[in-house]
Every structure is written in C-alpha cells, then in structure tokens.
C-alpha cells in the first residue's frame, strides 16, 4: 500500500511540469471563461464588471436558434467528410511512401509538407485570391482555356463547402501523413514477414495487421484533429465570410455562426456563455460517440 502511494506520488512529480503547463495555459482560460460568463463584462463594464448570475446563459440560448441548428448539421457533415477523406488519403499516401526501396521518398515527403510550413492565413489567402477568384483566379483562367464557362466557386453553399474542404485537406493532410507515416514505421516489420509467409495478401495485411497496430499510435492525433476540424474557423471564415470579402455563400459552422451572432458584440460575458455552451455540447457529443464506439468493439 505504502509502495503504491509512493509510486503515485512519484508519477505525479515526474509529470508535474507538463501538467502544470497544461493547467496554466489550457485549463485556466477555460475556467476564466466560465467565470466571465457569469459577469456583465462588456464594452460598458470592461474593467468594472460584476457578477450577474445566469443572465448571460438565458440570453445565450437565443443564439441556438434554427440558424444554429443548420450550422451544427453543416459542422457535423464537415467534420465527417473531412476526417474520412483525411484518414483515407493520408493512409494511402503514407503506405505508398513506405514501400521498400522506394527512392526519393524524402524529397516527396518534404514537398508534400510545404502547405504546412506556411502560416494558415497566408495559404488561405493564396487559395482565395489565386485559385477561386471568379475574375482572375487560376481555376477560371483554366476553365476559359478549356472553353468552359467561368464559375463563381465560393458563391453557393455546396460549391463553397467543396472548396473549403479542398483547402482544409490541403492544410491538414501534411500533419496527418506525417502521423500515419511515423506510426507505420514503428510497426514491427517481422510480423509482416510472418504474415507474408502465411500467405496473407496486401488487403488482409492492412486490415488485420497494419491498422490494428497503428491505431493506438494515431488515435490521439486523430481525436485532436476531429476536435480542431469541428472547431474550424479560419478556413470557412476567411474563404467565404470575411467582412469586406463575403462571397454570397451562406455556409456556416457553429463557430462562424457564433462569431457573427455573439462574438462581434464585444460582450465578453455573453460570448463566454456561448463558448461554454458549445464546449459542453462538444463534450457531451464526444462522450456519447465514444461510448457507442466502445460498445461496438
């Protein structure tokens, strides 16, 4: 018993630096936002705010109207589409890059990492003006050369969704490829040799050997990516909703919706309440899906 307690203490001591950092930079803002959500901190009471109870929450519920429901559905669809495509493409590319004796793989990998080596807003800007612009964008210049009619790529919901997905994949795939690639390399090669000797083909090896062995390694990164995809703001906002450059599509995720309907008010108490509600919703959502996944196993 004593030894057990000592071990626990030791474990916490060793992980203390990491956990303290997380408490400070990740947990504290959440708690602070929670605290602000019960105050009237807004432009008129910026530094002298006071406690107003659950007032903000009562008002925040109005943000969650039919428009929000639409945004929520779009966000779920967005997350599923993006995650499936990301995982499949990353797995295929990483597998190809891991074929034995394949030369120049380092060059290819490095080139494929390029989208990741730039700040996101720069890339999104390049896509928006360089590719999708309906007057001057490359896509329409090519369409014209092919004798096709120029398109307004970002003007309707569906085509904006597709364009945003392309850009999001472009931005996110390097990370995913690297994670899957790293995981594939840590798979014990001797198992493969045995499997090949047993006559397993590539598909069987992938399903029964590769995926189960890389799953625990990539799982945390995948879960983190699911959350960041769900919370994606930059891609959709900067491509279609930015003030001064709206494109006509009405595509919203929950965050862009919350931005236009709450965050722009400069009312921190109110916006904090909206944030906390979204946070709680997301946690409930992930606990539910996780439970189902576990039962399915």
């Amino acid at each position: 018993m004593k030894k057990r307690r000592k071990e626990t203490l030791w474990a916490y001591l060793t992980s203390a630096p990491s956990l303290i950092l997380i408490l400070l930079i990740v947990v504290f803002p959440i708690l602070y936002t929670g605290y602000i959500s019960f105050t009237n901190m807004n432009v008129y009471h910026w530094f002298d705010f006071s406690f107003i109870g659950t007032e903000n929450y009562k008002r925040a519920l109005f943000v969650f109207d039919s428009g929000f429901l639409g945004a929520l559905l779009a966000t779920i669809l967005w997350t599923i589409v993006n995650m499936v495509l990301q995982l499949v493409i990353a797995f295929v590319l990483a597998s190809l890059l891991n074929i034995q004796n394949f030369k120049f793989r380092r060059v290819y990998k490095t080139l494929l990492m390029f989208p990741w080596a730039m700040p996101g807003y720069v890339s999104i800007l390049l896509w928006k003006t360089g590719m999708f612009n309906s007057q001057f964008g490359l896509l329409n210049q090519w369409m014209e050369k092919l004798g096709l009619e120029a398109q307004r790529w970002l003007a309707t919901d569906v085509s904006a969704f597709i364009c945003c997905t392309v850009v999001n994949l472009w931005l996110a795939l390097p990370f995913m490829i690297m994670i899957v690639d790293g995981a594939l390399q840590s798979v014990d090669k001797s198992c493969y040799e045995n499997a090949i000797l047993d006559g397993a083909n590539w598909v069987q090896r992938t399903i029964y050997l590769t995926i189960p062995s890389i799953k625990p390694i990539i799982a945390p990164s995948v879960i983190i990516t699911v959350f960041t995809t769900f919370k994606q703001f930059d891609v959709i906002y900067l491509l279609t909703q930015q003030v001064g450059a709206k494109t006509g599509s009405n595509l919203h995720t929950i965050l862009t919706y919350a931005y236009e309907n709450a965050f722009v008010t400069n009312n921190y108490g109110y916006s904090s309440a909206v944030s906390i509600i979204i946070f709680v919703m997301l946690i409930a959502f992930s606990l539910l899906t996780r439970k189902r996944l576990r039962e399915g196993e």
Binding site: Y44, V243, K246, T247, G248, N250, V264, T265, N266
Partner: peptide, 20 residues
Amino acid sequence: PEMDVMWTVTENLLVDINMS
C-alpha cells in the same frame, strides 16, 4: 460602439440583395 456589429449585419444584407 454599436457600429462594431453593424459592419457584419450591413454586409450580410448587401450580400443577400446583390449576390443572392
């Protein structure tokens, strides 16, 4: 201070009229 929210609302209105 109220102008801060008007930029977005007005632009959405213009998009609705001129683009949609």
